[in-house]
C-alpha cells in the first residue's frame, strides 16, 4: 500500500505482464516476464494469474457463469466441475449463475470477479483496489473471501489498496512511496497500518 502516485498500480501491472518495467526483471514463479512476446504474456496471464479490478470486472453480455469460466474458455481448458462448484459456492454465487451483471449488486459483481480469478487455480491473484467501489459491508465480504482463499486454498493474493482496513486483511503489508518499497509490516491491524502510512507522509 501507499499514497496515490506511489506506484502501486504500476507495480501490479508489471507483475501481471501488462506493463513492462523500464529496468529490472519481473519473475512470476520460475518465469522471467520481460523476454516474453505479447502472445506468451497473454497466455501466461490467463493460465497463471487471476485478476480482480476495482470496478467493471464483468462482461455485461455474459451471464455470471460464463463470466466466471471465461478464462478457461479463452485458454481452451475444460471446466473442472468440482473445483468450479467449490469456487462458486465459496463466493456465494451459486444461486445467481444465470444472471447478467446488470442484475447484480456491486458486491455480488466483485465476488463473481473473485471466482473468475480463482477458477484457473492461478499461481497469483492480483487485486487492484477490489473494494474501492463498494460499501463497507460488501467490501468486508470480498476481503474475507480473498483472505479465505489464501488460508484455505493456499492461494497467493497480491492486493493493492490505500485503505488501512483492507490492508489489515493481509498477512503482510508492503509500503510503497515514490516508486520504492520503503517499509513492511507483518500481521497488520488497521491502526498499525494507519500509523505507518502517516509516518510515510512525514518523510
Amino acid at each position: 500500500m501507499g499514497p496515490s502516485g506511489s506506484g502501486k498500480s504500476t507495480f501490479l501491472h508489471c507483475a501481471a505482464g501488462l506493463d513492462r518495467p523500464t529496468s529490472g526483471e519481473v519473475w512470476l514463479g520460475q518465469t522471467e516476464l520481460s523476454g516474453l512476446s505479447e502472445n506468451r504474456l497473454t497466455r501466461l496471464r490467463r493460465e497463471r494469474v487471476g485478476f480482480v479490478f476495482q470496478a467493471y470486472n464483468l462482461l455485461s453480455a455474459l451471464t455470471v457463469q460464463d463470466n466466471i469460466t471465461m478464462p478457461l474458455r479463452l485458454s481452451g481448458t475444460a471446466v473442472d466441475r468440482e473445483w468450479a462448484e467449490q469456487v462458486v459456492g465459496r463466493v456465494g454465487m451459486a444461486e445467481r449463475l444465470h444472471h447478467r451483471p446488470a442484475e447484480l449488486s456491486g458486491g455480488q459483481q466483485q465476488r463473481a470477479a473473485v471466482a473468475r480469478a480463482l477458477i484457473t487455480r492461478p499461481e497469483l491473484v492480483l487485486a487492484d483496489e477490489p473494494t474501492g467501489a463498494l460499501d463497507s459491508r460488501s467490501g468486508a465480504q470480498v476481503l474475507s473471501l480473498l483472505r479465505e482463499s489464501a488460508d484455505e486454498l493456499g492461494q497467493t493474493v497480491l492486493m493493492v489498496t490505500h485503505d488501512p482496513v483492507a490492508a489489515s486483511y493481509a498477512q503482510n503489508v508492503l509500503f510503497l512511496a515514490d516508486g520504492r518499497l520503503v517499509d513492511s509490516l507483518g500481521a497488520p491491524t488497521p491502526a498499525a497500518v494507519a500509523e505507518r502510512i502517516s509516518r510515510l507522509g512525514e518523510r
Binding site: E38, T42, R45, E47, F53, L59, M70, R116
Partner: peptide
C-alpha cells in the same frame, strides 16, 4: 473499447 480491454486483461489475445 472498455469491454475489449477487460477481455484482454483476463487473458484474451488480440486475435480472439
Amino acid at each position: 473499447s472498455r469491454e475489449f480491454a477487460l477481455l484482454r486483461m483476463i487473458g484474451a489475445t488480440r486475435r480472439q
